[in-house]
Design a protein around this nucleic acid. Sequence first.
DNA 1: TGTCGGACGCTACG
DNA 2: CGTAGCGTCC
Length: 604
Amino acid sequence: CDIRNLGYEEKRELLATIKQARAFITAMVFQDGSSQLNSEQVLTSSVKGIVVLVKSQTKCLCSPSNSSPAYTWDACNQNDKLIYLKTEWSALWKQEDTHKKYVGQILFQMLHCKVPVICFNAKDFLRTLLAVYGSEISWKQVADSVVLDPRIAAWLINPSDTVPSFECLIQKYFEKSFSMRKVSTNTGFLRNALYQNVGLHLEKLYNAMMDLAHDLQVQGLWKVFCTLELPLIKILAVMETHKIHVNKQELKKTSEILGMRLKELEQEAHQVAGEQFLVTSSSQLREVLFEKLKLHTLCEKIPKTEIQQVESTSEAVLNKLQDLHPLPKIILEYRQVHKIKSTYVDGLLTCMKKGFISSTWNQTGTATGRLSAKHPNIQGISKHPVRIIKKQYIKGKEEEIITISPRTFFVSNKGYTFLAADFSHIELRILADLSSDPELLKLFQEPETTDIFTTLASQWKGIPSEQVKQADREQAKRMVYSVVYGAGKERLAECLGTTTLQASQFIDSFMQKYKKVHEFTKMTIEQCRNKGYVVSIMGRKRPLANINAQDYKLRTQAERQAVNFVVQGSAADLCKMAMVEIFTSVVISPTLTARLVINDYKMF
DNA sequence: TGTCGGACGCTACG
DNA sequence: CGTAGCGTCC
C-alpha cells in the first residue's frame, strides 16, 4: 500500500503492525525509476522513496520447506505487507510535512524495535536515512538498529568475488531459479506493477538472506558476520555522513607551487637528456634511458615489467641508475612531486564539496577482510612530509625550502582536535602470536621503551642495540613485511635495493633465527592444500583454488596469498573489533558526544 | 578528427 | 599481497 492514502486509524494500525513485525526487507527507489536492486547502480539519481516488505512471520514458521520459490510476494504470505514510503517532497505543503513526519515515525520505529532490517547495500540505506531524516533520526538510533546485508554475507563466504549487484547475487544463489524479468522504466509501466516487481525482488532478497545465513552458520562465519561486519555497516554509514573540512586556499596555493617546481624539473630533465620528451611517460623515459643513453649496459640487470617484459623505470631501478647519469635523480624528484600534486592536492580538490570531503567506504572490496576507501582514498594519503624547493623571483632571498605534509590539509572543527590511534606493529605481533616463535615473542615482553625494529635488528644480527644503524633497522622492518607479504628473494632484493643473492641470504638467516616463523608459513600452506582455504584469527575465510594447481606460478602465488591472508586478515579482524568496541562505547557514553572518523588502521 | 575505455606502469597506504 | 588513483598509449 502507498501510505499517503491512509487515514488516521489506518496509520495507527500500520505503526502497530510495524512494532510487531518480525523482519523488514527494504530497497530504495530512485528518481529515474531504478532501485537498489537494479544492476545499474546509479548514485547520481536521488532517492524518491523506500519500499519496505514487512514480514509478520519468519520464514521457518510459515514455510519450512522452500522447494517452490515464491512467484508473487503476496501469494506466499498473506500477512506480509508491502509499503511504499515517499521520501521526496516538492512543496512545503502542510500535508507534505505531516507525511514526512509519519514516514520518519515509521523508519524510526523500524530501527528502534530491533527487528532485522534486510537490505542490499544497507550502508547506503542508512546513510540516506541520516541525510533525509537527520533531525528525526540521529546516528545513535542508527547505531541501535539491527541491519543485515546479504551482499556482505556473500562476500564473507567468498571474499574473492565482490557480488556487483543484486541480480548477480540471485543468479549465484538461485541458479536453478528463473531468470529475472527486467523492469523497463522507459515504457509506460504501471506504477503498481513496478512496486509489485520490487516486492517480488524483496521476497527473493529475503530468501537469499535466509540461505546465506544458513551457509554462514555451516561455514563457521556467523560470529564474524554478527559481531564484526554487521555492526560495521552502521559505523561506516555514520562515518560517511560526517564531513571533514579541508583547507582549500592552502590546497590551491600548494598546487601552484608544485606546478612551478614540476616545470623546472621538466626543463632540467630535457636538458640532461638532450631532447624533449614527456617526463610522465614511462615508455618515453625508457627510450631515453636505455635506447639513447644505454644506461643498462653500465650496471647489473634491469628488472623487467610484468606484462610487456621491457626494462622497468620504477623507483628501485632509478635508484640504482642515479650515479651513472643526472637524469634518474631528476625523474625521481619529478615523480614524487607529481604524485603529491596530482593525487593529494588536485585530486583532493576534485573530491571537495562545499569545502568538505567525505570518503566512501567499501566493506566488500578486498579479499583480505580490510576496508577500502575512495573519493578520496583517505587510507592512501601520504604520511611523510616532502620538501619542495620554491624559487622566489621577488626581492629578497632567491629560494626557500618548504615542506608539504598532505595530512595537514585536513582541519578539525573549532574546539575539537583529531585523535589518531593505531595498533603498534600489529602484523608483527600477529606473526609472533601465530607462529609462537619464542624469539619473536620476547620482543614484545620487553617494555616498549626501545624501537621494536631496532631491537629486532639487534636480535637478528646478534649485535648490541646501540650499534644498530638506521640502515639495519630499515632492513629488519622490510624483511618482516616481506615475510608477512610472502615476498620471494627477487621482490625482497628490489625492496631492499640489494642483489638477489644477498636478499636470499637475508631470508635464510632470518628463517634460521626465527625458525617457528618458517614453520608457520609451511603449516599454513599445508593446511590450505588440505582444506582448500585459509582462516584468520576470528574465522574469516579465503578459498584459494590455485593452491593445488599444476602451474608453478599460479600455485606459488596462492601460497603467498595464503600466508598473507592469515596475517593481513587477522589484522583486519582486530582493527574491526576495535572500531566496533570504540563505537559502542561512544554510543552509550553520555559524555563522549564527538563523532568518529575512523580510518582502517587509524582513528582520527 | 576527437573521445572513450581497456591495458599497462608506477607508487602512496597498510 | 592487495587496495586506490594518477598517468600514458592504443
